[in-house]
Design a protein around this nucleic acid. Structure first.
Lengths: 265, 265
DNA sequence: CGGAACTTTGACACATATCAAAGTGTGTGG
DNA sequence: CCACACACTTTGATATGTGTCAAAGTTCCG
């Protein structure tokens, strides 16, 4: 049916000296350091974790492969064997489940600094597709290595568990959204959530371009693309946001938040 | 507002000899063994895990407190400090989130053999209420102890991660349900899911009594209690189920499954 | 420039929410 | 043991939000 496009994996660079010339280390780590300050993986990602020198020695076991995924390509697909978690370094992904009828259902979006693949740990296979919505770079974290390392660094273990638990809580929020909210509220939640996540990455929380189509938003929020479009127009008419195709400006975030409250009173 | 009813915690029994009189062990463990054959915790629960003798020695560190929660009482409440996971030994629980307006939103149901509290690991506080819908018994698994033990028994660690990941996948299924399905499909999924879980516990998959009200079902499935009632009546008229207040008989599970498919084509 | 993909807007249909009232079951106190 | 109150369920009538179908407008890219 759909042609299967695989991500082009960039081979890890050769080792190069870091610090002084004393201790060679994988280049991936050094590179990773540069952006980890704004990375949700900071508590998990080895280079970013506050490790003691001896722990750092242990950490050298794991090799981080960076790879590039171009727009429209898949980082992984449903059914692929699960071997690594992926930290998104930059770019934008959607996760989709393929339904029996062959149509895609969007289950989430993932931006720089977030992690893909946590739902695949149990089944040991990926249960969804991860598709890049723009040219992206990810940092692959071999799970076996991570697991072995976590056994020896308790704080890593702890942080990892926390991250998984957070994912469960996040999904509960979406369930609430899908179960109880109307179209306007759903979009308000969606936009404010994106805004907040961009802010966490140091980007503007009040102006950004959507990387996904109306149809993908609708699939995620449980409504049709037409309703997404109409509702965005409605929010614009209320003076809460500005919409111009993919561009979104959040004009009045206070009242946008109030939109969400309306449904809960 | 609502009176806060706390679960009555039954103190752990004194140690009694198991096997021969050679090695005394906590009675909780011995007790647990009797039902663990049909317990989802079998891969995690220490007494049920296939442990080597030396691992068994390590496992003695953890004391399992059993407690009883009577109908209407809370096992824990949102905001409580998280210290233990709870394996439901028998009974029936609902998880609810309290919305800003004070109303409850049901986020899940939990029957014998399932685990409560996994969403609380990250925040270290419970994010929802766990309310017994009938007199129930749970097995409290102190998380700190579990964590320490898992560090030394890799298979335990592995199984635990799997269990958390499974929870993420389960919630994705609910998201799909809430986002894409109509009332009839939601109820079909709900009933078949309950049926399957009862079957896993060795109970009849085709006849059971609902422990929750129509309103609680509706809250969970994102619809009103009237629609729940009407839709159940509709499924009965189609000859797929029999409904009599809380009693549900699944008459034609094949066609009930087919109901779900309809929305996905 | 032309075509494809996406977005916007309108008209209408339909599923579900809302409001209302009657029916059923359950537990409590006299 | 009965009677009453209460909580829950069922069913009906109507309102409303969102889906569906259709067509025109916009942007992007070869």
């Amino acid at each position: 049916m759909t042609r299967r496009i695989q991500a082009r994996i960039i081979p890890p660079r050769r080792r190069t000296p870091i610090d002084s010339a004393v201790a060679p280390a994988p280049a991936g780590r050094a590179q990773c350091n540069t952006i980890c300050s704004s990375c949700n993986l900071r508590e998990l990602c080895l280079p970013c974790c506050n490790l003691t020198p001896s722990e750092r020695g242990l950490a050298d076991r794991i090799v981080f492969n960076r790879s590039r995924v171009r727009r429209g390509e898949a980082l992984y697909r449903s059914g692929d064997r699960f071997t690594s978690l992926y930290a998104v370094r930059n770019g934008f992904f959607k996760s989709t489940i393929v339904l029996e009828n062959g149509r895609d259902q969007v289950t989430g979006f993932c931006i720089a600094g977030e992690v893909l693949g946590m739902d695949s740990i149990g089944p040991e296979r990926h249960g969804c597709n991860a598709i890049a919505l723009e040219d992206s770079e990810v940092c692959a974290i071999p799970f076996a290595g991570l697991q072995a390392l976590a056994r020896e660094i308790p704080s890593l273990q702890h942080n990892f568990r926390k991250m998984m638990s957070r994912e469960i809580v996040r999904e509960q929020g979406v369930m609430l959204l899908l179960g109880r909210m109307n179209a306007e509220e759903r979009l308000a939640v969606f936009l404010l959530n994106l805004s907040q996540r961009y802010a966490a990455q140091g980007c503007s929380p009040s102006e950004f371009n959507l990387r996904m189509t109306r149809e993908e938003i609708g699939s995620y929020l449980g409504m049709t693309l037409e309703t997404v479009s109409r509702t965005l127009s409605g929010l614009q008419q209320e003076g809460l946001i500005v919409v111009q195709q993919r561009f979104i400006g959040i004009v009045d975030s206070a009242n946008l938040k109030r939109v969400i409250g309306r449904g809960l009173d």
